[in-house]
């Protein structure tokens, strides 16, 4: 029984980290209409940043500054934001699908740096030994899991509240305005380029926080954590949950991560012994089919954006219009 609770604690921790990243993406896509195809780049910048700032020093290795936890995590967030600022300056004037592929490319380039720049990132071996927060103070493995879950939920809660405040502020209304109709927004004196850049930076910083939390749980980061599959997972979470709605984003994160991991768990129970060796491939087929069916059945997501009176068009229509413009 305690085992099940312990696993659930862990599951929620991971799902919580995914949910944080999904909230960041929701700010990008749901509220601003930025098609960010390089989620994993910002996750990775946060993860590596936190590790380099807070990890132990090692011979022949840059970094290992052993800064206090909150400083390291904050530093990771800032690094992810800074990366987004540079990326934004380069790519934000591109249209949707070009922006997506450019940001995707930046993620691939970042992975190549992580894999090859050994002085900075440890190369393919990665960096290790991050002091997990409170681990020294807490003896009990189960209790540590609970405390860490609380940390993740606290961060998730803070980010949620900040985004809700942000999108209901004049800044948030301006973001939606440029998402719906950029020309009109410009006519009203809004500067779409600057607004988009800020949205990109803030959302990326949130993704960086997710990356920082992730390394502080695993105490290790390597190029293997920077594979594009993460970008796909986070997008699937947002689309299934419902873009433009924070509750949808979090729900989607828990659901998709659940499907992703539980399908593996279920197959070890249900599939006959002769098929166990194929279980990996079958699991991928199940995940792929489920996402496709979900998109056919309910393309607007489980919890779609709630449209207030001032917003006549739906997010979806706006999205299709803007790619067709």
């Amino acid at each position: 029984m305690i085992g099940l609770v312990s696993y659930l604690t862990f599951f929620l921790t991971m799902a919580g980290i995914m949910a944080i990243i999904t909230l960041g993406l929701n700010l990008h896509w749901g509220y601003t209409g930025l098609f960010n195809g390089g989620v994993v780049a910002f996750f990775g910048a946060g993860a590596y940043g936190t590790m380099i700032l807070g990890g132990p020093s090692q011979p022949d290795q840059f970094g290992g500054f052993e800064l206090p936890y909150l400083v390291a995590l904050g530093g990771g967030v800032v690094i992810a934001g800074a990366l987004a600022w540079v990326v934004g300056l380069l790519t934000l004037r591109l249209r949707h699908d070009y922006l997506a592929i450019s940001t995707f490319g930046i993620a691939v380039a970042l992975e190549a740096v992580a894999r090859n720049a050994q002085w900075l990132t440890g190369g393919a071996r990665g960096l290790r030994g991050f002091p997990r927060p409170f681990e020294d103070q807490i003896d009990n493995n189960f209790l540590f899991g609970v405390v860490f879950l609380l940390i993740v939920l606290t961060v998730l809660g803070l980010i949620w509240l900040s985004i809700e405040r942000l999108v209901n502020s004049p800044f948030g209304r301006a973001l939606r305005a440029i998402r719906e109709d950029e020309v009109a927004a410009r006519a009203l004196g809004k500067n779409p380029v600057r607004l988009r850049l800020w949205s990109l930076v803030i959302g990326a910083a949130i993704m960086g926080a997710g990356g920082g939390l992730y390394v502080s749980y695993t105490a290790f980061v390597s190029p293997q954590d920077l594979l594009p599959i993460l970008t796909f997972q986070i997008w699937a979470m947002l689309i299934v949950g419902g873009a433009g709605n924070n509750r949808g984003a979090v729900l989607g994160a828990v659901l998709i991560w659940g499907v992703w991991t539980l399908s593996g768990f279920a197959l070890t129970r249900l599939a006959p012994a002769s098929m166990q060796i194929d279980a990996g491939s079958i699991q991928y087929i199940l995940i792929g089919t489920l996402i496709v069916c979900m998109l056919i059945w309910r393309p607007e997501g489980l919890l779609p954006e709630k449209i207030k009176k001032s917003q006549p068009m739906t997010a979806r229509k706006a999205a299709s219009n803007s790619t067709r413009e």
Binding site: M14, I229, G264
Partner: peptide, 21 residues
């Protein structure tokens, strides 16, 4: 047997499920 999909997050999750459940 669990598949790690060559993905650290999936591998860690599988390990947790094996150890806990």
């Amino acid at each position: 047997l669990r598949d790690d999909q060559n993905d650290a997050r999936v591998g860690v999750d599988a390990a947790r499920a094996l150890v806990d459940i």
